[in-house]
């Protein structure tokens, strides 16, 4: 029973789908951030698997940069979220309609 690249790619796609369902389902902004982290991690698995089965380190490099981007996204996003919560007392998406777009 050999684990092939397809196994990992299917797993990555399943996790990505879970993250997408989370993005579409959630209204709380903190929960949306969690779903975004799941999306980024799913792609990381795909990159690492392709890197291993191709015998190439480029996939791992991309995974490193994705991790650093995720870390900075969390820092900036949580800062903005805290400011928004201090101003309005809520972090739901529904009240963020001040631009009436």
């Amino acid at each position: 029973m050999e684990i092939t690249l397809t196994h990992y790619l299917v797993l990555s796609a399943v996790l990505f789908a879970i993250g997408l369902i989370g993005v579409m389902r959630r209204k709380n902004l903190l929960m949306l951030f969690f779903a975004t982290e799941i999306l980024l991690n799913a792609t990381n698995i795909g990159f690492a698997a392709i890197s291993h089965y191709l015998g190439d380190l480029t996939g791992q490099m991309f995974a490193f940069f994705i991790i650093s981007i995720a870390a900075s996204e969390v820092a900036v996003g949580l800062g903005l979220l805290i400011v928004w919560y201090k101003r309005t007392g809520k972090i739901d998406l529904d009240i963020m309609t001040s631009m009436r777009g």
Partner: peptide, 21 residues
């Protein structure tokens, strides 16, 4: 990242249930 989220959640009211779309 998890420590950051945990610190961020101290600012928010996390005891009430999350309302869904």
């Amino acid at each position: 990242v998890m420590a950051l989220y945990a610190f961020g959640m101290m600012f928010f009211d996390t005891t009430r249930n999350v309302v869904e779309k």
